[in-house]
Write a protein that binds this DNA or RNA. Structure first.
Lengths: 231, 231
DNA sequence: ATTATCTATAGATCTATAGATAATGC
DNA sequence: ATTATCTATAGATCTATAGATAATGC
């Protein structure tokens, strides 16, 4: 029953950071399911349990909130992936293989979602939506993802020195599409396969994707080789 | 200067159909760029040059308009692709190859966008967005696309009789992701490749995708084979 | 007569902000 | 004193509909 002022649990800076995190988490969840325009600030406020005005206090507007959701995680996974590709290249002393490059690029990203919990997987869903939004998707991706992608392109060139850049870039587009479809987790494969496969099973994807994509690149290379010999 | 009543150019039924087409075209264009929630009926009315009330006269609400945009073309390309796969299987007398099945499935779809003009390519962009929308995307795709997808799965099974269904379904997911990324035409590959490749160049995709994906499936099969021998 | 189209508007949001109040921090 | 949070609300949409008017069809 003492009335001494209790020590404040959190400093203002901490409180500020925590509340922003909470808002970002709620926004991340909702944007993941419905996209930028499918969510209102009221929806976010309700989800988080705060007032709409508080969201405006911390974030300029809805688009700024959306951008910050992406900017919170993009550099994390991007950094991990670049580090993994650097480490891979160093470990093989320049003798880069398709499988090696793709495992570093893809598995490192998938691990973020496998180990990062639901919040990370929500972020991945937003990425998949953004990657398919013609009007402004490509600008955001360029800003956030160009370094990690160009690093992969470098490695792919080293693994396939005789393959024209066009083939490498189109192949990258296929890889990227497959990865985004995985991140979207729409449950479509669950229905198609009658419950045999699950959208959320990123381990199953990790066990197959790099191998599959390496085989794809190799098939393109072989096709070029055959053209060269016969033409 | 004669005042005789001129013959009506279009019957009511024709006028009705034409105006609905115009509205669907405008809606298709806008939904393609911004998605369902990024477009208002006012936007569509302005784009088409009619009053908002007229859109309500022909379509129940925004979602119904969106659905009809998809239902106008989905059965067309779906039918073509199934016919192409049927014809392919008949032509090889059951000796199905990965390349053959994938060419029938992928190239037939790409041809619709190559030959169908901007309207068809807009439809493709919407499909890509829907395919990555967790909340309701998978229901729409199931309803519109299941027959053509299960037909492909059948052919893939015949081409790889020893490969487990899991591998086939995950491989299908990669194929589908790559195709959707192509349909999205965000311009990302243009920037990444410094103008070497163009999002709109579906011929370039057609020249590579079936080969790439067949190589991917083959790599997965080989991996399984090696596991069987060593394990 | 029936159908197509427009005018006008109700009612429901939604974003954003001003200003009040409550909670920390020197 | 400063910062966090809430109350209240302005102003701008947006969807949807009722009802009037114009254009076809028997």
């Amino acid at each position: 029953m003492t009335k001494a002022t209790p020590k404040p649990r959190r400093s203002k800076a901490e409180q500020r950071a925590e509340k922003q995190e909470l808002i970002l988490n709620g926004a991340e969840l909702l944007f993941a399911k419905r996209g930028l325009h499918g969510v209102t600030l009221k929806d976010v406020a309700k989800e988080v349990g705060v007032d709409t005005a508080l969201i405006h206090y911390y974030f300029a507007d809805k688009k700024a909130l959306f951008d910050q959701v992406l900017e919170r995680r993009a550099p994390v996974t991007s950094g991990r992936r670049i580090a993994a590709m650097d480490a891979y290249e160093a470990s093989v002393g320049g003798k880069v293989t398709l499988e090696g490059a793709l495992h570093a690029y893809l598995d490192t990203d998938l691990d973020s979602y496998i180990q990062g919990g639901e919040a990370w997987r929500n972020y991945g869903q937003i990425g998949a939506l953004v990657a398919h939004t013609p009007e402004w998707g490509s600008e955001i991706l360029s800003r956030l993802m160009d370094p990690v992608v160009t690093r992969l392109i470098e490695l792919l060139r080293k693994a396939m020195p005789d393959t024209p850049d066009e083939d490498i870039f189109w192949g990258y587009q296929f890889v990227s599409g497959a990865l985004m479809m995985t991140l979207a987790r729409t449950g479509r494969i669950d229905k198609l396969s009658n419950g045999l496969c699950h959208s959320d099973d990123f381990e199953a994807v990790k066990a197959r994707m790099a191998t599959f994509m390496a085989g794809g690149f190799r098939a393109i290379c072989d096709q070029r080789e055959r053209e060269r010999q016969s033409g």
